[in-house]
Design a protein around this nucleic acid. Structure first.
Lengths: 135, 135
DNA sequence: GACTTATTACTACATTTGTAGTAGAAAAAT
DNA sequence: ATTTTTCTACTACAAATGTAGTAATAAGTC
């Protein structure tokens, strides 16, 4: 879709499968197809070539980088985890919350059981933010 | 994708175009294709039949309901806005934030300019939450 | 009543996505 | 050296998505 909103938000928007793989890479950089496949298979059944195919597409899109390693390859995430997270929240904020960060937060807090440590951390964060708005 | 995470999160996940339309409906219930089209066109160019087609698919998926109105129809969102929002944050939380609501919130707050009213509102909300964790 | 407009139904089509099979080459095992 | 395993490359395919055209029908307009 090419709405103005989309354009602004036209940053990297990995698909579900891609994000799943990125997550793994962010934790175990660089990794082989085999490795990624095994990790995923701890959660769900999927064929080796499926993972391979997704990784190949991701390479084409520059979502990952390939390092030759003898016959095979090692993969490495290109975007930073934070960057992608930011993109995704921003998008959600605009497309589903009309920009109201508040409501989004309430929802994020509301459904999960947030530990009181997290609540405290957030409170502190808020204090800081109020003092120094450009944090 | 049929990961365990996805299954849990297998609630309604409207596509971009669908969400765009839902947003409009939530604000102006019930609305004609024409109306929806006009609203969208304030933002971006799109053909009337495109909107019609999406609405027809949404009807099939039960994302909207159709009310006959003479020759034409009026459409009404089926899911509640909050419900969809919750689904989307929950999904984001699980797929991109490994469940850390905190980080998600920091990001939500961090990138947009959040008014100090919003910050205050959040602080109050936090107070309440601490007193009465099952809010 | 003939003509123009609005509206729907149906069809189409390119892309993206999730999924996986097959073939061929390289490496490892025996 | 022959067989088995491990990889990659390539191909395929169904479903979803964003997009829009055409035909038919109903409704207003002159």
């Amino acid at each position: 879709m090419i709405s103005p909103i989309m354009e602004e938000t036209q940053k990297i928007q990995p698909s579900d499968a891609e994000l799943e793989i990125l997550q793994i890479l962010w934790e175990h950089q660089p990794a082989s197809v085999r490795f990624v496949h095994e990790i995923i298979c701890e959660q769900r059944e999927v064929s080796y070539t499926t993972v391979l195919t997704v990784l190949q597409r991701m390479t084409k899109k520059k979502l990952v980088e390939r390092i030759k390693e003898g016959k095979s390859h090692l993969y490495q995430a290109v975007p930073k985890e934070e960057e992608i997270q930011q993109n995704l929240v921003q998008r959600l904020l605009k497309t589903a919350y009309k920009g109201s960060a508040m409501k989004l937060m309430i929802h994020a807090l509301g459904q999960e059981e947030v530990s009181s440590e997290e609540l405290n951390a957030l409170q502190q964060w808020l204090e800081t933010k109020k003092q120094n708005p450009d944090g």
